[in-house]
Design a protein around this nucleic acid. Structure first.
Length: 1030
RNA sequence: GGGCCUGUAGCUCAGGCGGUUAGAGCGCAGUCCUGAUAAGACUGAGGUCGUUGGUUCGAGUCCAUCCAGGCCCA
């Protein structure tokens, strides 16, 4: 006997039962422990930061990771999926800063780095429990008992080893760059972090400033005051100006105009941008940018007069440049290729201490370097506006220039500007030293290796990711912060000598102490020092203060999760490198996808992953991005508690293709549940109910059984084709189309196979046809359960256990330990699939024809005429006529040539209206795409009686149902009504008794204990009643 | 400003190489069917397939332009 399956199912309860079963049976562990020789399939878990509760977008990534892993397991692989936690980084620090009420680095240091980092460490695991519960609940199988954790010493040590390799190869270097800098956090931000904080329509001063020329075209000093007109949105950088840049090939104009005081002046600016001039002017000369190059001008603020040190880029012997102190500086016009002719004046103010392009230009032309702003964004020196925060200094600088007649024009410019995503402070571009990995050295390999990665969707490879790689710049890996992997570089505080350490043992040797038990984090690692080994030097080696970008942490997980090379050296060859599969959302293109790719190209010159699904964003029901700020984040819990995990998973898989953004709402999940899972469940419930009544058991199916009945052959053809298609889709990392195809099959199975086969299950005799029906439906259900197991692991497990495991103690304990179904091509028969599709279509049209003519299906009709489009189809029609006649409740299918005639009549009656139903010649005819189905609208009294008999049987059935009788209960039926009822009850006695399991039809008032109902039936008042026979 | 993606019914989505009258589900209105079904069937309303051009005998599909939205980057 099968377990009784109620059609009322509570999926969340079912989930809990299955989870319990998996736990008892240790199914997940066994899915890899019990197949030591199976080929490996590596899934890398992109580590989440557990410093917040998981949201629905985390569920999305996790179920996509899971579905492929489960599929590969069923295909016979041993799937390694080690969990991981990302535990370092600014987000963690920010949270603790807020909790402690700290607002600057100074306050953190006063509070104490040791205690601060201790709080960071604790906070990271605060939400781990939530994550574990969610992960379990959605059926994501990942090893959470032995995860990799980026804060562990072993993990950090692998990072040190990697940096040491790069150091030895000259790929790790320190450089001064213009980097986005947050003056509140006093730290550079990575490009990834900058991206989080762009804000549109930020107003900034649009400032046109004049720089007075000390030399003019022709060489001598000008006779009238002459200026270069430059534009900036950051007046606070003007004290740092040491050059002006023009575009060599562009046209520039010298114009004559009057200044505010009414005097005549000359100005140079780009011809293309003359429109920025305010009043009347005359163009006196046109020149190329190249002719302006080399001309000198007076700085707006001569640094030597305002107490700001002056340095200058000097060429070294090795072709590099260094900054050296100088007493004075000259300022001149240089050429640069980045000068825009779209806005400004075509002459760009250059301050090497700030922008990165400016810095580059400074190096190239050996410009002076003036830095009048400190890292907190405060103006230094003795400028009139010294001591102010840069943005507050802006108006004062403008006023000062105005008073000196050097401000040509000012307005407001709205543009997109980056703010610190943590604290909303506007970022400053600030030239300072950072550590870099020279990824540009392997740029060609980055691009080349990328071509070997299978991206889903494919366009990411050459599009977003390829574009990013082709524009690769060196990776800034240092952060002037506290909670992160410390950079293992020590420097002598006297002579500046440097050393990079590649492991704890190496460090122990260097300092002469056993550091095995040292916490490798700050501040402890900062206490490790040793005397400078250089003979002439009395200094000490101290660690540089920076920690690493946490993207480096996650990018090194392929090696660090195994503590390579200190342990597990065999990962080089045993298939654990590279990953077969990773999956994250598209925002990881420049995050984890890149850091994995960059590090494996640098370290192994190989790809880090073979296949990657890049998920689109998950949007709310109105199509907006989910964010804490908008408060539209959907909590997975409420969805899981109402609809269960499979419904949520199924929805996420099938709603749209992985790369597309997807809208999410409770309603859509519920729709999925009803349409797919509930439909399947009801087929399953139907099957088990009747199988139990008939005492059918799987062992009754002969080993060499083949389907004979048309319906069976058809549905098994569909099933085997489904297996082929679904297997292909999953093999191709496409759960979306796999799920959609399964859903289609479930719909067909329920609404045609079972619908048309019901009588075969009901009938009392146990013949070969009935066994065939059971064997067929059994096979469909068990196969579908396995097919959908990777997508909907809970319901498929439940079905598997009841349908298969229960009867076969030798079967694997879980559907997830079974083999994925393999199609039997010999059962795939295109002809029968086409024929049945025709039957479904004709039936649909027949229903339309009946409906239009008011002929309800319960009323039998004499005949139907069908016109098909091709002779092949006429053949098929013959084949499936029985299905059609039964479905439409019609006696005969006429195929005596009448169809052509009727079709012509119907067409002319329909006129221009292509698809329609028309009444012609006693028929009601439906037309559609060249087909016609015409039903005979004539109802003889004999047919009418038969219809009434069915109507009465139907009413009796409803009474049975209302009285909650078992399907197999026998009854006595009472009836009272006019002569028509009496006649039909007598004339169709056998039919009605058989349909309703009545032992007697009594024309008398019902017994007291009978369930009774009086109603109008086709205009007649009829009383019907049923009583169960014990 | 640059790159990538997306625009098909009120909503969510299908529409292999261009080819009869562009489809499904949900929702709405109505009718019907049902002893598996919280389901299902039928009818109806709802589409200038984002715009404008082009290629073609023929374009939702191919090309170009523009518009709108999204993501990423400046």
């Amino acid at each position: 006997m099968f377990d009784v399956v109620s059609s009322r199912v509570n999926f969340p309860d079912l989930d809990a039962e299955v989870l319990e079963y998996w736990k008892e049976q240790e199914v997940f562990r066994r899915s890899y422990d019990e197949r030591p020789d199976a080929p490996l399939f590596m899934m890398y878990e992109g580590p989440p930061t557990a410093n917040g509760s998981p949201g629905i977008h985390h569920v999305l990534a996790r179920v996509f990771k899971d579905v492929i892993s489960r599929y590969r397991t069923m295909k016979g692989c041993r799937v390694i999926r080690k969990g991981g936690w990302d535990t370092h980084g600014l987000p963690v620090e920010l949270q603790i800063e807020q909790e402690l009420g700290l607002s600057s680095k100074r306050e953190i240091e006063e509070f104490g780095i040791a205690e601060f980092n201790k709080r960071c460490r604790e906070s990271v695991f605060r939400y781990v429990k939530d994550w574990e519960v969610m992960t379990d609940r959605i059926g994501y199988w990942v090893d959470m008992e032995d995860p990799y954790v980026t804060l562990e010493n072993n993990y950090i040590e692998t990072g040190w080893w990697i940096l040491k390799q790069l150091w030895d190869r000259g790929l790790l270097y320190q450089d001064r760059r213009g980097a986005p800098h947050c003056p509140r956090c006093v730290s550079s931000l990575s490009s990834h972090e900058v991206a989080l904080g762009y804000r549109e329509n930020t107003p900034d001063p649009s400032t046109f400033v004049t720089f007075e020329a000390t030399e003019w075209l022709g060489g001598s000093a000008p006779d009238v005051p002459s200026y270069f007109l430059a534009w900036t949105t950051t007046p606070w950088t003007l004290p740092g100006n040491t050059a002006l840049a023009v575009s060599e090939d562009a046209d520039y104009s010298i114009v004559e105009t009057t200044n505010n005081a009414g005097g005549t002046i000359r100005m140079a600016l780009a011809t293309a941008l003359l429109e920025v001039l305010q009043g009347d002017y005359t163009v006196t000369q046109e020149v190329k940018g190249s002719e302006l190059v080399g001309l000198s001008y007076r700085p707006l603020y001569d640094a030597s007069k305002y107490g700001t040190p002056i340095r200058q880029f000097i060429a070294n012997d090795d072709g590099q440049t260094s900054l050296e102190d100088v007493d004075a500086y000259s300022t001149k016009v240089v050429s640069a290729d980045f000068v825009s002719m779209d806005d400004g004046s075509g002459i760009v103010h250059i301050a090497p201490a700030f922008g990165d392009e400016d810095l580059g230009l400074g190096r190239e032309h050996h410009l002076a370097f003036v830095q009048p702003v400190d890292l907190q964004g405060v103006i230094t020196g003795n400028y009139p506006f010294a001591g102010k925060f840069v943005k507050d200094a802006d108006p004062e600088i403008l006023a000062d220039l105005e008073s000196r007649g050097l401000l040509y024009h000012q307005g407001v410019y709205r543009h997109t500007y980056p703010f610190c995503w943590r604290c909303d402070t506007p970022l400053l571009y600030y030239a300072k030293t950072s550590w870099y990995i020279r990824t540009t050295a392997v740029k060609d390999r980055l691009v080349g290796n990328n071509s070997r990665i299978n991206w889903y969707p494919e366009h990411i490879r050459e599009g977003r990711f390829g574009e990013w790689l082709r524009n690769n710049v060196d990776w800034a890996i240092s952060r002037e912060r506290y909670w992160g992997t410390p950079i293992p570089i020590w420097q002598c505080d006297e002579c500046g000598g440097m050393d990079c350490l590649g492991g704890v043992e190496e460090l122990s040797q260097r300092c002469g102490k056993n550091l095995e038990d040292l916490d490798l984090h700050r501040p402890y690692v900062d206490d490790v020092t040793w005397p400078c080994p250089s003979n002439a030097c009395n200094g000490a080696f101290r660690r540089i203060p920076e920690v690493m970008d946490c993207w480096f942490d996650s990018g090194m997980m392929p090696l660090a999760q195994w503590h390579y090379p200190f342990e597990n050296r065999d990962i080089e060859t045993d298939g654990r490198l590279p990953a077969d599969y990773i999956c994250e959302a598209v925002d990881q293109t420049r995050g984890w996808f890149y850091s994995l790719h960059a590090l494996s190209t640098l370290m192994q010159d190989d790809i880090a992953y073979r296949n990657v699904i890049c998920l689109g964003l998950i949007l709310d029901g109105r199509g907006r991005k989910m964010s804490k700020r908008l408060g539209n984040i959907v909590e997975p819990d409420s969805i899981l508690d109402t609809h269960g995990a499979d419904a949520l998973r199924w929805y996420l898989f099938t709603a749209s293709h992985p790369g597309e953004p997807r809208r999410f709402s409770d309603r859509l999940v519920q729709q999925t549940l009803r349409q797919v899972l509930l439909t399947l469940w009801n087929v399953y419930s139907f099957f088990t109910n009747y199988a139990n009544i008939d005492e059918f058991e799987p062992s009754q199916i002969p080993a060499d059984w083949r389907p004979e009945a048309e319906l069976d052959r058809w549905v098994l053809a569909e099933l085997n084709q489904l297996v082929q298609v679904v297997d292909g889709h999953l093999d191709n990392y496409n759960p979306t189309d796999a799920g959609r195809r399964i859903a289609e099959f479930i719909d067909t199975l329920s609404n045609w196979y079972v619908r048309r086969s019901r009588r075969r299950f009901w009938k009392s005799e146990a013949d070969a046809d009935k066994l065939g029906a059971y064997a067929t439906l059994y096979r469909c259900l068990t196969t579908v359960a396995r097919l959908m197991a990777p997508l909907a692991p809970f319901v498929s497990e439940q079905m598997y256990r009841n349908l298969e495991l229960r009867f076969n103690p030798d079967a694997p304990d879980s559907v997830h330990l079974t083999d994925y179904p393999v199609a039997d091509p010999s059962l795939i028969d295109d002809a029968i699939m086409d024929a049945t599709r025709l039957a479904i279509r004709v039936s649909s049209m027949g229903r339309a024809a009946r409906s239009k003519a008011g002929l309800k299906v319960r009323q039998p009709l004499a005949s139907v005429v069908v016109r098909t489009r091709t002779p092949d189809e006429a053949q098929y029609l013959d084949w499936v006529s029985e299905q059609i006649l039964e479905e439409l409740n019609i006696k005969t299918l006429r195929a005596d040539g009448i169809e052509q005639d009727l079709y012509a009549q119907a067409q002319s009656a329909a006129g221009d209206d292509g698809d329609s139903v028309v009444a012609i010649d006693g028929y009601s005819a439906a037309l559609e795409a060249g087909y016609m189905v015409a039903v005979d609208a004539n109802i003889t009294s004999e047919l009418a009686d038969e219809g009434l008999a069915r109507e009465l049987a139907h009413r009796i059935q409803n009474l049975r149902k209302g009285a909650r009788f078992e399907i197999t209960d026998h009854i006595v039926t009472y009836y009272q009504g006019p002569g028509d009822v009496e006649r039909v009850m007598t004339g169709h006695r056998d039919y009605i008794m058989q349909e309703t399991l009545s032992e007697a039809l009594l024309s008398e008032p019902p017994a007291e204990d009978a369930r009774s109902e009086t109603a109008k039936v086709e205009g007649m008042e009829v009383t019907l009643a049923v009583r169960r026979v014990e």
